[in-house]
Simulated scan of single mutants.
Amino acid sequence: MIPKFRAWDEKHNEMIRVISVNFDEKFIRGLTEVENNLDIESSYNFEDIELLQATGLKDMNGVEIFEGDVLEIPVAIDTEKLNGEVVFEDGVFGIKDVLYGWGFEIGLVPLIEIILAKKVIIVGNKFEHPHLLKE
């Protein structure tokens, strides 16, 4: 499977749809949306963006989950919900620390375990919606 990516451009405060990655030259080609659903193609150096990989998993609505996404995770017999950021650490996509005490161990919980146990949905990402991760 060829990995999918998207990228966050901090300078312009926008998410970029990545169409190609050149790891040797350290740049991407990407599309950004402008008015009237038109896309502009541009090149971005790795130093100017944060490259985010798709996890290969989807939320309960069938939306693909990427690094940096914020997931709403039902806990406490599905009456309470927690938000957790998707991270890639030690070769695993997961949610770190927020689920301890809700049937998961402390530390990084693999995303596949969470998805198999809970009906998660993407509620945003850490760049455009940082308030979702505040307690």
Score class of each variant (00 low, 15 high):
residue 9 D to L: 06
residue 10 E to M: 08
residue 10 E to I: 05
residue 11 K to A: 03
residue 14 E to I: 09
residue 14 E to R: 12
residue 15 M to Q: 03
residue 15 M to I: 09
residue 18 V to E: 04
residue 18 V to A: 04
residue 21 V to N: 00
residue 22 N to L: 02
residue 22 N to K: 04
residue 22 N to S: 13
residue 34 V to C: 03
residue 35 E to A: 12
residue 35 E to M: 09
residue 35 E to W: 10
residue 37 N to S: 11
residue 38 L to Y: 11
residue 40 I to E: 02
residue 40 I to F: 03
residue 41 E to I: 03
residue 45 N to A: 15
residue 46 F to L: 07
residue 47 E to M: 09
residue 50 E to S: 10
residue 51 L to H: 08
residue 53 Q to V: 01
residue 57 L to I: 06
residue 61 N to M: 10
residue 63 V to A: 00
residue 64 E to I: 09
residue 64 E to H: 02
residue 65 I to K: 07
residue 66 F to I: 08
residue 66 F to G: 02
residue 71 L to M: 09
residue 73 I to L: 09
residue 73 I to H: 07
residue 75 V to Q: 11
residue 76 A to S: 15
residue 76 A to H: 11
residue 77 I to W: 13
residue 77 I to K: 14
residue 78 D to M: 14
residue 78 D to L: 13
residue 79 T to R: 12
residue 80 E to W: 02
residue 80 E to A: 07
residue 80 E to G: 02
residue 81 K to R: 15
residue 81 K to T: 15
residue 84 G to S: 06
residue 84 G to E: 05
residue 86 V to N: 12
residue 86 V to G: 10
residue 87 V to C: 11
residue 89 E to R: 14
residue 91 G to H: 02
residue 94 G to F: 07
residue 98 V to Q: 06
residue 98 V to D: 08
residue 100 Y to V: 13
residue 101 G to F: 05
residue 103 G to F: 04
residue 105 E to G: 06
residue 107 G to V: 12
residue 108 L to S: 09
residue 108 L to M: 11
residue 109 V to E: 13
residue 111 L to R: 00
residue 116 L to N: 15
residue 117 A to T: 14
residue 118 K to L: 08
residue 119 K to C: 07
residue 119 K to S: 15
residue 120 V to W: 08
residue 120 V to S: 03
residue 121 I to S: 15
residue 121 I to K: 15
residue 121 I to D: 06
residue 122 I to T: 05
residue 123 V to M: 03
residue 126 K to Y: 04
residue 128 E to G: 01
residue 129 H to F: 06
residue 130 P to D: 13
residue 130 P to V: 11
residue 131 H to D: 14
residue 133 L to H: 04
residue 133 L to E: 07
residue 133 L to F: 06
residue 135 E to Q: 14
residue 135 E to N: 14
